[in-house]
Design a protein around this nucleic acid. Structure first.
Length: 566
RNA sequence: UGGGGCGUAGCCAAGCGGUUAAGGCACCGGGUUUUGAUCCCGGCAUUCGGAGGUUCGAGUCCUCCCGCCCCAGCCA
């Protein structure tokens, strides 16, 4: 029944090259079940690029009935903190993944790793080197010239054992000694020119405290951690391709429980943003944004606060695919992913961002009626809600235009529009501030026959606009976000600091917005669609009862705005 | 002129020698619509970085060329 067709059984999405390898390894019996791992270093917050890796690793585990470990790659205590461990766990869970019992730390293996190192020394495959960092750089050679062997390369085993033990016991200062693999100083692959395995660091570790003053390097730790956990497929990004020979060398030289296969894929690049932890940290530290979870940040916590759903991020990750090309994904693809998810999930409400008062002159002063609004026009299961309607309402300022062109389907003097779910109104007069000329109020009349929004005489209106009742509306703050940078690739020009491309208008705060009363007690995190405008969520940090704050997750597609631009 | 990778539409991405080169985003038309949203329907690569070659047949195989990315941390 084996078929060369690599599409899924239902034929929806073809398998990427990694899933093809996994499929083949299962078919050939090389593995009975795949075991993957997501191995973040706890030195910062997770971002959308990590989400790609998380979805890949946990996704494969779920699809092929395997498992995925969460392993903290905590081998450099000078940069790591347990606060990051907690935030990473939270983000992975929030994305919808579960590592079950399989939570590991590279630091769990420090004893094991030390024993393996002794093993290497005994096999004459590792030695203690006393060259300084500068000397070592000189000895390493260059891209085009081979390196020179260290004078300590042929130390006797006993001496290496003794020195390594002394390093471990804190008898040598930082930088004075390192343990190196004995491979090939003439290798065209710099990673194979006797790479460092252990360095001395007099730094306490967030988990092991002061037990150690020597810490293993990534290249040595990662492969052995993978092997120890019997990982089958060790997935990492392209820049580690050159490290694979070293990964394999360690596992071939030592006797380990398994020899996982390292497979590299392209990391995610998104237009109009930066992705590296260093740069994100700079934005936070220099107050260009308000913290790691600023809704403009493409961190998982920022996206969460912005109103992105876990499903939207997962869908985005499967949509963009896995490959080996350096690619730049357009920000619009991410935005499209939230719109798609929220379109079916978010209840519809009405909110006015830039209010313009409308007095319905033929509506009784003290009358209040209720009209019924659908919570989702395509999904009756989401029910309906009552909306108060009265003589004074607010509409969006941009829904009125004097001397409007024919194609403007909104309000102008003499034009009739529908107030969503309420009545047809016709504008009769404009009230302006005499000094500034600014429009302060509109006078309209309503047609009592059109309750609910339909005219018994069958007459049509071209436009339907949203509104709130002045006496019942809830005042709130709304924050609009735009892309953080003005250019597609803020990193492109090495001469210019990426921060010079920051978009000065990435945040707009509107403070006198009015939303319908059903939102009065909306809980933090609540996602809704403000009809005709976009998807918004109640801010999880700054929103308080009585002082609601909404974040615009993403606007609706707007073909009218596009048309106007032309 | 060191090594390792990668080139299919504006952006991603299928394609695994054999009919008219999937799909998504973007874009352009049209229809439905009490959201200028959603939804629906249609359009959008005579050509796969370039040039040769093998073959009855090449995006897929071979050769050469061109372009881009990564590597000289006691970071991961």
């Amino acid at each position: 029944m084996s078929t060369p067709d690599n599409s899924t059984e239902t034929g929806e999405k073809p398998l990427d090259f990694i899933r093809q390898i996994v499929t083949e390894d299962l078919a050939s019996g090389k593995h009975s079940t795949p075991v993957t791992r997501f191995p973040p270093e706890p030195n910062g917050f997770l971002h959308i690029g990590h989400a790609k890796s998380i979805c890949l690793n946990f996704g494969i585990a779920a699809e092929f009935n395997g498992r995925c470990h969460l392993r903290f790659d905590d081998t450099n205590p000078s940069k790591e903190e347990s606060a990051y461990v907690e935030s990473i766990k939270k983000d992975v869970q929030w994305l919808g993944f579960d590592w079950g019992e399989n939570l590991f730390y590279a630091s769990d293996y420090f004893d094991l790793l030390y024993d393996y190192a002794i093993e290497l020394i005994k096999k004459e495959k590792a030695y203690v080197c006393c060259l300084s960092a500068d000397e070592m750089r000189e000895y390493r050679g260059t891209l085009t010239e081979p390196g020179k062997e260290s004078p300590h390369r042929n130390r006797p085993v006993e001496e290496n054992l003794k020195l390594f033990a002394e390093m471990k016991d804190g008898r040598h200062p930082e930088g004075s000694h390192v343990l190196r693999a004995k491979i090939d100083m003439a290798s065209p692959n710099l990673n194979m020119r006797d790479p460092i395995l252990y360095r001395i660091m007099n730094v306490s570790h967030h988990r092991t405290g002061d037990k150690w003053c020597i810490y293993p390097m990534y290249d040595y730790t990662h492969c052995l951690s993978d092997a120890t956990e019997k990982i089958t497929h060790s997935l990492c990004t392209l820049e580690f391709e050159d490290h694979r020979p070293l990964y394999d060398w360690v596992l071939d030289t030592l006797e380990t429980p398994a020899h996982p296969q390292q497979i590299e894929f392209a990391r995610l690049n998104l237009s109009y943003t930066v992705m590296s932890k260093r740069k994100l940290m700079q934005l936070v530290d220099e107050n260009h944004v308000h913290g790691w979870d600023d809704p403009r940040m493409l961190t998982i916590s920022g996206l969460r606060r912005r109103g992105y759903t876990p499903a939207s991020i997962r869908n985005f990750c499967t949509e963009i695919g896995i490959g080996k090309r350096d690619s730049w994904i357009d920000m619009g693809v991410l935005e499209n992913a939230v719109r798609n998810d929220l379109n079916s999930k978010a209840p519809r409400v009405m909110g006015v961002l830039d209010p313009l008062k409308v007095v319905i002159t033929n509506y009784p002063e003290d009358r209040v009626e209720e009209v019924e609004g659908k919570n989702h026009p395509q999904n009756p299961d989401m029910g309906t809600r009552k909306l108060p309607f009265s003589r004074e309402i607010y509409i969006e300022r941009s829904d009125f235009l004097e001397n409007a062109p024919r194609k403007f389907f909104r309000l102008d003097i003499g034009r009739e529009v529908r107030l969503r779910y309420a009545y047809f109104i016709t504008c009769n007069a404009v009230v302006k501030d005499e000094a500034t000329g600014e429009i302060t109020e509109l006078h309209c009349t309503y047609d009592p026959e059109t309750y609910g929004g339909n005219a018994p005489d069958g007459r049509k209106v071209k436009g339907t606009i949203h509104w709130v009742s002045a006496a019942h509306a809830v005042e709130c703050e709304v924050r609009l976000y735009d892309r953080l940078f003005c250019v597609e690739n803020p990193d492109a020009d090495k001469e210019t600091d990426f921060k010079e491309h920051l978009n000065p208008d990435s945040l707009t705060s509107l403070t006198s917005c009015l939303v319908e009363p059903s939102l009065r007690d909306a809980a933090p995190g609540t996602c809704v669609q403000f009809e005709r405008q976009g998807y918004f969520c109640v801010d999880s940090k700054d929103s308080k009862p009585g002082a609601l704050v909404f974040n615009r997750t993403v606007g609706l597609r707007d073909s009218w705005a596009k048309r106007k631009k032309k």
